[in-house]
Design a protein around this nucleic acid. Structure first.
Lengths: 246, 246
DNA sequence: CGTGCTTTTGAATAGTATCAAGGCCGGTGG
DNA sequence: CCACCGGCCTTGATACTATTCAAAAGCACG
């Protein structure tokens, strides 16, 4: 799914190939309306899509690519709080005067559609199923985040890394020859930012897992060779693991 | 707001005194419908409202009282992920076969209204503003939880306790003679479960804050004597603190 | 073929969790 | 009314884990 930087190549909603996009729940009239009024921007790997502290004007829908959502601490410590891909959303409707407490940046070249608050509000009022599915999405993300919160508070470093690998696999996993491949190239620090630890610990944990044969690493490519054993490591924290990892 | 255990005293929605309740966004026809079909249960302090692993059948609306939402680890470690009071909601709509990954229990005697999935779905489809506000609520809770996640990953013990106190004040705070009183009686372990630490550390941090004159403690009553200095402790983690604490 | 960044490893340091024991308070029953 | 009991609170010492600092090696880029 190659995205041109040319703005004239703006994808129209009614014939958009992204089937999972929530906008698809709107009726045709509104699909056209949204498609005509939205803006579309191509981001390169590493680009910021949302800056922390930026004013909220509307909502972002990921057309193509992969994105991470993060919040900064006071030095260069960051916490990656969410991973999202094509079909998912970023940001949120906000009352005027609100600002983003989180930032978002592209993990690979990505195309993002943006819809303004007012139009969005009208779309919500006229497409109940659209609103409903978005509500369900937020509700599910909230539960997932609540669960991860417990993990960050209670897990050991090794468990946090196992958890981060599972999370990455759920978000960007790809099955190749019975192995699960994490289909995104991340620095060690970026993995550490997901797990909530520092890069040195991430490295130590990853090489430990590699020694045990649980994973394979070659530079930035990670393969989960024994997915089930990784799950076993964190199972005690997820009594209802089927809820999250289905 | 005293709540009788008598089920016949079921509060009707159209004349319910809880102004903040999301249901109030429905039109009168639906208010009546919901009021007639909902169930109402009184819980005593300490009672479980939602059990972890329980099947999802509908949504809970807090009529009166105070509630904490938590997830368990593998021994008796728990993480309190959310605090809620009158007017807020618990649980979520869920597809059939879903289970609650979190539990909820009453921090004081509480009255809870419960509405079943199917009725709720129909209410959503016919009351766009109701759905919209619920979506906004989840969206806001998600952002708050994402922010807390960072805190649990990066803060020191002292900072975590300061954060927990601020959170408690936001949820259950009461201003009395220019002092902020946390209007709920919690054990030290319960405070520790919010902060994501153990009871001993919570005690050490609290007595330290007391020595510094930031707070006052008498048994289970906590007063924030120097709120601003508590905020200063955690400010580095919240660049846009006005978003969360307004 | 250098230069700069990421990755990796090791050792010292700081912080946190655990364990154990005593004190305090509230409730209960004599 | 008082003494006892049990649970919660508090404190100290210890063991453990994680963080930080420093330095070297590897890789990618020009």
């Amino acid at each position: 799914m190659k995205v041109s930087t040319n703005v004239k190549a703006l994808p129209v909603c009614e014939s958009c190939p992204v089937k999972e996009c929530f906008v698809k729940e709107c009726n045709v009239e509104w699909l056209i309306k949204l498609g005509q009024s939205k803006s579309f921007v191509s981001y390169k790997k590493g680009d910021n899509i949302i800056y922390e502290g930026q004013a909220v004007h509307g909502m972002y829908f990921i057309y193509s690519g992969k994105v991470k959502v993060l919040t900064s601490g006071y030095d260069d410590k960051k916490q990656t709080v969410r991973l999202a891909k094509s079909g998912e959303i970023l940001g949120h409707m906000g009352y005027s005067g609100e600002f983003y407490p989180i930032g978002a940046s592209a993990l690979e070249d990505s195309g993002i559609c943006f819809v303004e608050n007012e139009l969005l509000y009208n779309a919500f009022m006229n497409n109940p199923k659209f609103t409903f599915l978005l509500m369900m999405y937020y509700s599910r993300e909230l539960r997932k985040t609540e669960s991860r919160m417990k993990g960050l508070a209670q897990m050991t470093v090794m468990e946090k890394v196992a958890d981060a690998l599972i999370l990455l696999n759920n978000a960007f996993g790809k099955t190749i020859q019975n192995n699960k491949l994490i289909d995104v190239k991340l620095e060690r620090k970026e993995i550490a930012d997901i797990a909530g630890i520092n890069p040195e610990q991430a490295i130590r944990a990853l090489s430990d897992f590699k020694k045990q044969g649980l994973i394979g690493i070659s530079r930035k490519v990670i393969i989960l060779k024994q997915y089930d054993r990784l799950i076993d490591i964190i199972r005690p924290y997820y009594h209802n693991i089927h809820v999250f990892y289905s």
